[in-house]
């Protein structure tokens, strides 16, 4: 067969395949839920679980689907509730005390290093990987990364984790310098 004809045939076959893919991509288009992303952006990303959801994203999904109230995030504080209310166009409500209290002064935790036995239990519960250390070696907390969620305090078997006042207001820190960076460039800037 003339090579030119085979060229046309194979191009035609490719075109048909392309059309199939196009049709399928239209037919099975997945609508993302942009509102979830927007809510998630407002939440403080402490991943502390005080809202009763496993993390900030699941809580954002729950808010978006109407399952959860906007007042279940103590780390976000009144400020966070206000922003959520603005985004979702609902009434500003008081923080739900069942989920814990918003702290007036931002707190982070510190390990009393001479008491640390190096059990790694606090490392495992830390949602933002702010604790460094290895088995049977002393651990310490990276203050800048700590979100003050206090999840490590009950995990410590020797009660050597205490809360201290944050050197910088955490809310400011979180906005300028979130615990979890969304891009590498963002992380490298700091």
């Amino acid at each position: 067969m003339n090579p030119f004809v085979s060229l046309i045939i194979i191009s035609f076959v490719s075109l048909v395949f392309g059309l199939i893919v196009m049709w399928v991509s239209k037919k099975f288009k997945v609508e993302g839920n942009p509102i979830v992303e927007q809510i998630n952006a407002i939440l403080p990303q402490t991943q502390c679980g005080q809202c009763t959801y496993p993390g900030c994203k699941p809580y954002a999904q729950a808010i978006a689907s109407g399952e959860a109230q906007i007042n279940q995030c103590p780390p976000g504080g009144e400020e966070g509730v206000k922003k959520l209310a603005e985004l979702l166009d609902v009434e500003v409500i008081e923080l739900n005390p069942d989920n814990g209290e918003a702290k007036e002064i931002d707190m982070v935790v510190e390990i009393i290093e001479k008491d640390c036995i190096g059990c790694t239990k606090c490392i495992q519960v830390c949602p933002v990987d702010a604790i460094v250390g290895a088995a049977k070696h002393m651990h310490t907390i990276i203050i800048d990364a700590c979100t003050g969620c206090d999840l490590c305090i009950p995990a410590c078997p020797v009660d050597c984790i205490i809360t201290i006042e944050a050197p910088l207001p955490k809310f400011v820190q979180r906005i300028d310098k979130p615990a979890l960076y969304s891009t590498i460039e963002q992380a490298q800037q700091w």
Binding site: F17, I20, V21, V24, S25, F28, K29, V30
Partner: peptide, 12 residues
Amino acid sequence: VTVQVTEMILHK
């Protein structure tokens, strides 16, 4: 094409 279509259908 199979991979692409499978991926899209699965995603949905």
